[in-house]
Amino acid sequence: MNFEDYRGVWVFIEEKDGAVAPVSLELLGAGKQLADKRKTELAGVIIGDNVRMLAQTAFEFGADKVYIYDDPIYRYYRTETYMRAMLACVEKHKPEILLYGATSTGKDLASAVATDLPTGLTADTTQLDVEEDTGLLLASRPAFGGNIMATILCKKYRPQMATVRPKVMKALPRIKGASGQLIEESIPITEDDIRTKVLEIVRTTIKRVRIDEADIIVAGGKGLGGPAGFQVIHQLAETIGAAVGASRDVVEAGWIEHHHQVGQTGVTVTPKIYFAIGISGAIQHLVGMQNSGLIIAINKDPAAPIFQSSHYGIVGDALTIVPMLTQAFKTALGRKEEVDAGKV
């Protein structure tokens, strides 16, 4: 393997609801920094059906080039089809670094591609850097349940691949009208070659609150004592128009559904304001919210680690403070009627 042949930083660009998935934009941001450091170009790889317009978005968020596989056979994600396209592209154009979002699609695709190439793949990266002269990718990730961070290298193979957690990298500001080089690619592939078929896609009808998109999150932990105590979280959230988050212990206790869980095995969130109430601040929780804009902790234990990670803290009993806070917000936000009606 001649390392000289491998050049450029690539990002696998995932589609979501007809647009570029936010994680892919974040990766273009992170990839740009790596590419600049290596004085090389940043490219996106788009695979899908009728996805040409995504390329423009990629250019506007920093891509110099986009390789595109546009064919009805790629309408739904299938490991078999996407993997073949990606393998062909890698073999033909030889990137030095290839990044994927650590989404279910990104992880699935990356694992398959890594095995076939073969090359090393670092999962769930949260920090990326590159050695300027050698091009060695320094991919760091939490290990052993978040208790430590480990930096992982792939010295002997190219490309170097990593999946990167959503919401930890920053997208570049969009440059409207930016352009780049669009390279159309295709491989000979027909439906008959493929052993899997998507029969149906079922979207859950109940519109979930997406905590990863919320500006304000009120998150509650085990300290609220039980499902009844947890109601104060819902009440505060409703009053200020926030989404509800939770620690894993709360989810496991069945007080709230899993998609509200913030943290390593839940969702990573970066709201503008994050309230952590009755949450101890275990590392696995912290990794999911520590990049929030403003973190406010309420906990009755002054030694709770959450205070170390908050901008402001209140030591006290959540069950008395939160209802008071809710009330105060109601007054301050001018929802006088509700206050009068005693609807707390």
Partner: peptide, 8 residues
């Protein structure tokens, strides 16, 4: 192919 170079 991957090696852990450091933990912190």
């Amino acid at each position: 192919p991957t090696i852990v170079s450091s933990v912190w």
